[in-house]
Design a binder for these strands. Structure first.
Lengths: 337, 337
DNA sequence: CGTCGTTACTTAACCGGTTCGGCAATCCAG
DNA sequence: CTGGATTGCCGAACCGGTTAAGTAACGACG
């Protein structure tokens, strides 16, 4: 079964290669009758365009890129990346675009990947996650001219297209929740402060606690279950200890809950726990975990749509996706007397 | 900054396009002096080969494909896929190959993707996960001539290259573990029996329990935390109830543990729980979970290496990657009296 | 010294599309 | 009825590589 090319279609339809190309791409230059005939022949022969050939002449790769700077191990553990990728794919499936996913070790490797992709013309655009404060990826992408949608706050995006969730409002909601339960000593187990969303939540946490007159502390971690557990152990064995802890993801919250139990304490009786991101994990612990919930899959889908818009000529804009919603579950309660 | 092509290199080095190609690809046909000169010019101009052009003439895409038939949501929750992808990428990073990842809804969509990829010559080979009993993907891949490495038992691979872990031995170890603790009523919360590895574990579970004279039952689920919880609740509220439960992944085991606690029972006092896959989650529950541990990242890496071998002309073989190792943790104990 | 075989290139075709310039045929206005 | 614009299609160049075929120069050998 030899490959079917437009040359073969041209032969069978009795027209030239050029005419076939116009017909197949819905471009003017052929009559409706001819177009129909060509489409019919193409369908009969089950013609599929050759990506490489199209890319070579049209200078479009029909591929988008996504780089994840994480170790392979982390990738398997945190629920965000995969859900996000799933959302991106759900939009892509309806188009002829493909996704090039690259997992690299660190930020320099990520920058190198963008350089490589730009030079090879491998992708038509990229999605940038884990936006940082003073992110070096922004000037690089500008320089090499790769269209991009950033996932993160407009204040960090320097005018590039971005999609964000309102971390400040969400953090306010979380802090107000525990404050309204009567908590005064509140801790935050945060991720790495280089990440923009962590930084923003740090600011919001401090501001909210100041406003509400709370006694707070922040511990920074690398987002892993290990460090979430370690941080929780340190907090809960100190004197005095916090009566509420707000985590930056749900993996750390789950690990934190285990530590609380291991210390012979109970949630919410001894401590109120609030998770972030709300994967199903939070609904399948005992007690179930209060969480700031957002739709990660939908987030990925939204970002992909915005990138498609950008390629369609839309000018770069900041899009608010949604504000994480507080879901109160069994790990919320009043502080111990 | 115009794109640099081999034509430009040829002009500057004072040779023809063809000679440049030979030089850059380490092929005979040019003198060492010329080769060195060409390489120097190419380096100076920061030449990067154009993938599309190379693919068009060489009929290789330098891309491998991986299709995941899962909902976007599931993807974010189960620790296997992402860890596996991470392992695959860790090998790919050392080559010039890229990974095309496609997330689709179901098996028919997955088959369609392979057809499409084969027709477009989009990938040079694919990795096939979630091998099934009588898997329809095997004949399709044979027909369209896509080189593939299957992830699953040789008994299901029909002679195609595959990498597997010894589920039978692992299940034996798990059952012998709980039997040696004195358990006689053992349940298995399994995934969907269409999946080859589930089927193999089902067989092994039945055989082992027969051999050891245990009183067993099997509940099939869709691998989700929800159904893991439901199954556990059904098992633990029945009379008589099992004193040990072996799960097919760790998500269900974690959810099962929560149900046990919610029912006012304790592990291991009232029931011994054994998880499968052993992501870090198992070390961060209270009690920590006994699990059949295997290195998912390494598994992905191994599979990728075998696919590279296959493309290098190795003949299709079955490779045993490793046998999951029993890690005994706090959720293991003797049955209640 | 003629011939044969290597070596080191050059030339040109080719991969499968897109796209531009040009040329009849047709249409319409003057 | 004529001139200019429009329509519909053809032929060819082009994208940036790879590779088969051809050739000139040179050394070895009978």
């Amino acid at each position: 079964m030899a490959r079917v090319t437009i040359k073969e279609i041209a032969r069978r339809a009795g027209v030239s290669k050029g005419a076939v190309s116009y017909a197949l791409n819905n471009q003017p230059g052929v009559s409706e009758a001819t177009r129909a005939r060509v489409l019919k022949v193409a369908a009969e022969l089950e013609w599929v365009p050759n990506r490489a050939a199209r890319q070579l002449s049209a200078a479009r790769s029909e591929t988008f890129g996504l780089v994840l700077a994480r170790t392979a191990k982390t990738l398997g553990e945190e629920p965000f990346s995969m859900g996000f990728v799933g959302g991106v794919e759900s939009v892509l499936a309806r188009t002829s675009y493909a996704l090039a996913l690259q997992v690299v070790a660190d930020l320099p490797a990520e920058l190198a990947t963008y350089r490589q992709w730009a030079a090879e013309r491998r992708v038509d655009g990229v999605i940038v996650v884990d936006l940082r404060v003073e992110d070096p990826r922004i000037p690089l992408l500008r320089k090499v001219g790769l269209p991009a949608v950033l996932v993160g706050d407009p204040s960090l995006a320097d005018g590039m297209a971005c999609v964000w969730t309102d971390g400040t409002s969400a953090m306010n909601a979380a802090v107000e929740h525990v404050a309204s339960l009567g908590h005064r000593a509140v801790a935050r187990v945060a991720g790495t402060p280089e990440h923009g969303h962590v930084w923003i939540r740090d600011q919001a946490f401090t501001a909210a606690s100041l406003r509400l007159g709370l006694d707070v502390q922040v511990v920074h971690t690398d987002f892993s279950a290990e460090e979430g557990a370690t941080a929780t152990r340190a907090l809960m064995t100190a004197n005095p200890r916090p009566t509420a802890i707000i985590y930056d993801n749900d993996l750390m919250a789950v690990a934190g809950l285990a530590v609380v139990q291991e210390l012979g304490l109970r949630s919410p009786h001894d401590v109120t726990l609030v998770a972030w991101d709300d994967s199903t994990l939070c609904r399948h612990t005992h007690p179930t975990l209060t969480a700031m919930s957002h739709n990660i899959v939908g987030y990925g889908a939204e970002v992909m749509c915005r990138l498609l818009d950008l390629l369609d000529g839309a000018r770069p804009q900041a899009h608010l996706y949604s504000t994480p919603l507080l879901i109160v579950r069994d790990s919320s309660g009043p502080p111990p007397p």
